[in-house]
């Protein structure tokens, strides 16, 4: 009984909104005081197909800059995370706190200052500019995940590989990276989501030149036909879920192949 209440609460808070979005995307005008849509039509989907090219290109653009952000944060954090996990030094806690601040302070506070600088360097309105600003805002998630990953891995594998004659590069590539994969995926998923769902930073630094899915969605939210906005929101939900599912599956498979799981 108690568990039923819990599940009903969870459904009400988290699943019902998603369900309602499905209904809106298929409803042909859902007005007060109807509790259930008066009728269903494919007008939202027709609208979607009509603007297919614009939608797909902004989706692709969001996808590209989010993946690039994941890549940039990964390369920024890999070696520093190893250093952090394996060394104790004076001021480490303070430094860790400082390195986590970009994810905590309002991003506006540094992004608007940088905007001027980016214009001077002609990084404003370009893809590299957007990736840089998203990376500086989201790397703390990758950094924490990688530090935790290196800590759980310990040093034994590295020492063992070195004793067997492996060089630093093959230790990293053949021993550490495969073991680090779960942490990379965990950190990368968060960074991807943060980058993919950010509106303001992409708008500020991308200046409308770098298309984004959130930028496409924003004006639709207040339009009279809500079907398209609901449909796009659903894509927002399903795309990362699908991506993570595939990632999880392929990770499991590769671990099984190596006899690790």
């Amino acid at each position: 009984m108690k568990h039923t209440v819990t599940l009903i609460l969870l459904m009400l808070f988290f699943a019902v909104p998603a369900g309602v979005l499905v209904l809106i995307s298929l409803a042909s005008g859902w007005r007060f005081p109807d509790v259930w849509p008066a009728g269903f039509s494919f007008s939202g989907i027709a609208l979607f197909l009509q603007q297919k090219e614009q939608i797909l290109s902004s989706l692709a653009s969001s996808f590209v800059f989010s993946l690039l952000t994941v890549g940039v944060t990964f390369f920024m954090c890999l070696v520093p995370a190893a250093v952090f996990a394996r060394n104790d030094f004076r001021g480490k806690t303070v430094l860790e706190g400082l390195l986590l601040t970009p994810a905590l302070v309002p991003p506006m506070t540094f992004a608007m200052g940088l905007h001027f600088f980016f214009i001077k360097l002609s990084l404003a309105d370009t893809l590299p500019g957007v990736v840089l600003i998203l990376a500086i805002f989201s790397y703390p998630y990758m950094f924490r995940a990688l530090v935790a990953g290196f800590q759980t891995m310990g040093e034994h594998y590295r020492i063992c590989a070195r004793n067997l004659g492996a060089g630093p590069f093959s230790i990293l590539w053949q021993v550490e990276l495969p073991l680090l994969m779960p942490a990379v995926v965990a950190g990368g998923s968060v960074v991807f989501l943060v980058a993919f769902s950010e509106y303001f930073l992409v708008f500020l630094i991308g200046g409308g030149r770098v298309a984004s899915f959130t930028g496409l969605l924003m004006p639709l939210l207040s339009s009279s036909n809500r079907s398209l906005a609901a449909l796009l929101t659903l894509i927002f939900l399903l795309l990362p879920v699908g991506l993570f599912f595939i990632l999880d599956l392929s990770l499991m498979r590769s671990f099984r192949k190596k006899g690790m799981a």
């Binding site: 969870l10 988290f14 309602v20 989501l193 969605l217």
Partner: peptide, 21 residues
């Protein structure tokens, strides 16, 4: 219970849209 992660994935502007709806 994993459905609780749905709003974690939705961008802020979509959550605002849900509140509007």
């Amino acid at each position: 219970a994993l459905i609780y992660k749905i709003p974690l994935i939705l961008p802020h502007i979509s959550v605002a849209f849900v509140v509007l709806v």
